[in-house]
Design a protein around this nucleic acid. Structure first.
Lengths: 364, 364
DNA sequence: AACCGATACTTAATCGATTTAATTAGCGGC
DNA sequence: GCCGCTAATTAAATCGATTAAGTATCGGTT
């Protein structure tokens, strides 16, 4: 304080300081320059030169007037926004929501914010949103189950994306292991006639998952009959597509004792279709789901499923993205990170009934 | 162009203009001042003075160099961020997700962005997040099922908030009508012994809903037995709390033929508990849920439920908030907006069975 | 010839912070 | 009494737009 110029006396601040105070006003009030205050508040190396007493004066005033740096001004100067975008198909699909939780946890801990956007499988939104987010000055993007081709001017981490795109890191499940777990479980129970529901064609996991299933079936000597293969159709996040797919499988007339669905939601729809056609789960048909969303455990019957560590995946995606954003070389590494699935056995699977009745098509 | 000074010739821009171009550079390249370009790009009234030819030159260049105004700089100057915060308990509860969809739709159409935050019922996060969002310069906040007392320095719209707080607009369901629909439906089917599951104490709808139920029960001559009243406990967004609550009701030994749950998720948990105790739904006990989340229709049995227009609620919340943000007087109006529920009859309700067996407690 | 008003722009301030380069005061040494 | 050094701070540029206020040119009028 020894050298504070007497020519610039501390200026008082009006009582009702409800509106945020600016650095400049705070500095004026302290009789210091805004540079000094900024340096101290941000604990810059330069502040080593500032005597303790002054620092305390600054901190006191900052607390008293509840000073909060204007993040917009800071962003402009630093060319950093500390925010990222998250693009996903749908908030209410049980899958994205869990990934989001993981993302949020990590970002919160690192001081990042995120702008979310759901495209509901509309091509236009899938195309537009990344640019909109870019306009919003995000520093990176996490896409969840969203195919995106174009090269973007910032790092991208893709959850269950599978294409190798420059600048995109993929977080992927070990799908082969997943198929082994599911089909192995059914085989062990004694099932041989297994039906499959593939994902929608727009789902990025669909193709990889299916390849894994084919490979594992072949290895285990399970025949993959075309009549026992159905595909989800439509963009509804409800169990309806699974219901429709299962109806088709049943209508084929080819008997099966087990069904491996693309996800838990479609498994739930499938179970409804089976029950409507007079089949009981798991007595007549075993069903295995995928994901282990909330609620899978509470469905009746409780779903046997392949759990994806969704929260962890979200966390990992966020971590990977932040790392790439922070890395000095711009994080050019576009590789893949793999996570492991887990088999959760509940009530929807059982050994095939001895009296192997063929599944008969119900009336439409 | 007649008067373009020959002293500042159009300056070429290097080929690889991948990185965004600034207004200044664009103006330099055009041989104009940035003010002129800004005025034209933003279609300010002043641009009426600019000849068509110049305007076209500007637009052409903007397109060619893919000019995008830096939103940070603009925000700083205009003191507007065109973004709001959304605070909710949980992404994966089926309820919030639908509200979010509505919010997103509306905001997208108005050019606003949103920062989302889920507090998972942690007091600390409920307290901190609004300030964090404020620091992030949101212009308003939508809270979903989140009790918030403190006065905030921007407009707040609260979905299913019920307190009258200065500066907060509530979007509420007509709970009395909802209770009438549910209880009326059960009465019409012939039920008299109705059990109830109240919401968690932290849920903002819990108290209002319960008052309405009491009122309607009284009006309809239904006795509200304390033993047939349970409350959800714990923060899990899964059906588990509903399961536990139903277990308690069953354990009371008091017979009931119908159950009105706080929401669909808890109804699903309750159904599981009933089935485990040997009751069949709806044969022995009818169950009515609340919300009509995705999946309610595909549960087995499909849930009869009171539908809240959740997407519409989100939309309405966003609209109300934007209106208050844009209104010149700062939108001091803190009132309430009411929406109407709807009864959706599916499979989980039926007339009480003639052979009115008392519900017997199952082994623990 | 001086003036006016319209046209077609430009200048410069501003938003609120960060950051680099400079400045000042005091002190010890010669 | 001057030099150089350190400690403590500050001035000024900067980020990229927006915007109020100003200016130069020209045709036309009195």
């Amino acid at each position: 304080m020894t050298r504070r110029k007497s020519s610039s006396p501390a200026r008082p601040i009006p009582e009702h300081h409800k509106q945020p105070i600016s650095l400049k006003r705070l500095a004026e009030h302290l009789g210091l320059s805004s540079a000094t205050v900024s340096i101290v508040i941000n604990r810059k190396p330069l502040s080593d030169m500032i005597p303790q007493e002054t620092k305390e004066r600054i901190w006191d005033a900052a607390r008293r007037y509840n000073y909060r740096p204007n993040i917009i001004a800071r962003s402009l100067r630093q060319q950093r926004t500390y925010s990222i975008g998250v693009l996903l198909p749908e908030f209410s699909d049980g899958y994205s929501a869990l990934v989001l939780s993981g993302i949020e946890d990590y970002l919160l801990s690192k001081g990042y914010a995120w702008l979310a956007a759901s495209h509901r499988h509309k091509d236009e939104l899938i195309r537009e949103y990344p640019h909109l987010l870019y306009t919003r000055a995000v520093e990176g993007l996490i896409t969840v189950d969203t195919p995106y081709e174009e090269h973007l001017p910032f790092p991208v981490v893709s959850v269950s994306g599978h294409r190798q795109i420059d600048g995109v890191t993929n977080i992927v499940l070990n799908h082969e292991r997943a198929a082994e777990l599911a089909i192995g479980h059914l085989c062990e129970l004694g099932h041989r006639e297994i039906a499959f529901i593939k994902g929608q064609s727009f789902s990025s996991d669909t193709s990889v998952r299916w390849q894994s299933i084919r490979k594992v079936c072949h290895a285990m000597g399970i025949e993959l009959k075309p009549e026992l293969t159905a595909q989800l159709e439509g963009v509804s996040p409800s169990p309806e597509p699974g219901y429709a797919a299962a109806k088709k499988l049943i209508a084929s007339g080819v008997p099966f004792t087990a069904l491996f669905a693309f996800n838990d939601v479609s498994a739930i729809g499938a179970i409804r279709a089976l029950q409507e056609s007079g089949q009981r789960v798991p007595d007549d048909v075993s069903v295995v789901g995928f994901d282990d969303i909330y609620g899978a455990a509470f469905h009746i019957p409780a779903l046997t499923t392949i759990r994806q560590p969704l929260v962890k995946i979200g966390c990992l995606a966020a971590e990977t993205l932040i790392e790439r954003i922070s890395s000095p070389n711009g994080g050019k590494t576009s590789g893949a990170v793999e996570v492991e699935p887990e088999l959760i056995v509940r009530e929807s699977t059982a050994p095939p009934s001895r009296a192997q009745r063929p599944v008969t098509p119900s009336r439409t």
